[in-house]
């Protein structure tokens, strides 16, 4: 019986020591792996949430956009809001046609809000279009309002008029949606009648006055508005 007892005790101690050793070794091994960390190459790459990046965001488009954003008050806490024709000409450093061509991919994303002659007042269709486009933001970071005026009248008058048109669209969005950081989302450009006038073919775009007469003069009494799905 003594022999059995001794064997039992030895077996018990062996099992206990073996179990304890195995547990200790595994915990220590985990502690070591915890300390050294998992290799970066083994870690799965996780994307970081970001603004949308549409195919039309070409380097040239983004370059112009970035210049406008920085120079026209959307970033950097600048006090001024918007860019006028002289600014845009300088900033964009491209011809009128090239400037307009940059916005061609936004044909389906944006719309042309049309105004009466010599007026900056939004009609109901214009307001509706603005509201509908605004809620279609998706992943876009910036909303652009590019206002124009027709050739009728002096450059100074048209510059001022297009500025008012840009503002009327901007204020309507602000009044309707009460966005607290609207200044940092909306880029205003007013081109008067001096830069990047639209051709009659733009009447085929998404215009606020559908089914109404549209000519080169009418299409320039407008503000082109669109979200821009580019990471800048």
């Amino acid at each position: 019986m003594k022999y059995a007892g001794i064997v039992g005790i030895v077996a018990g101690c062996t099992l206990l020591a073996g179990s304890a050793f195995a547990v200790h070794a595994e915990v220590k091994s985990s502690a070591e792996r915890l300390k050294t960390g998992i290799a970066e190459s083994v870690k799965p790459a996780v994307a970081i949430a970001n603004d949308a990046e549409a195919p039309y965001c070409t380097p040239k488009f983004k370059e112009v956009l970035a210049r406008v954003i920085h120079a026209c008050g959307l970033e950097g806490g600048a006090a001024r809001r918007g860019c006028q024709p002289a600014d845009v000409k300088t900033l964009a450093s491209i011809s009128d046609d090239d400037f307009n061509a940059l916005f061609t991919p936004l044909k389906d994303r944006g719309g042309v809000v049309m105004y009466d002659d010599g007026s900056e007042k939004l009609d109901d269709d214009g307001k509706k279009m603005l509201e509908e486009l605004w809620v279609e933001r998706k992943g876009a970071r910036y909303f652009f309002i590019v206002a124009r005026a027709s050739k009728t009248g002096t450059p100074d008058f048209n510059r001022s008029l297009s500025h008012k048109r840009a503002n009327s669209a901007f204020f309507h969005v602000g009044d309707k949606f009460k966005e607290p950081d609207l200044d940092k989302q909306v880029g205003l450009l007013w081109l008067g009648n001096e830069f990047a006038q639209l051709g009659k073919e733009y009447c085929e775009w998404n215009v606020s006055r559908k089914g109404k007469p549209c000519a080169a003069e009418a299409i320039n009494r407008s503000a082109f508005v669109s979200w821009v799905d580019c990471q800048l």
Binding site: M1, Y3, A4, G5, V7, G8, I9, A11, G12, C13, L15, L16, S19, V23
Partner: peptide
């Protein structure tokens, strides 16, 4: 469970070896 079963195993071994003398 590890500790307890280690005890039971050694105790059972003792009972098995001791037989009627346990």
């Amino acid at each position: 469970a590890v500790g307890a079963f280690a005890f039971f195993a050694s105790y059972a071994l003792y009972l098995l070896l001791a037989g009627p003398r346990a």
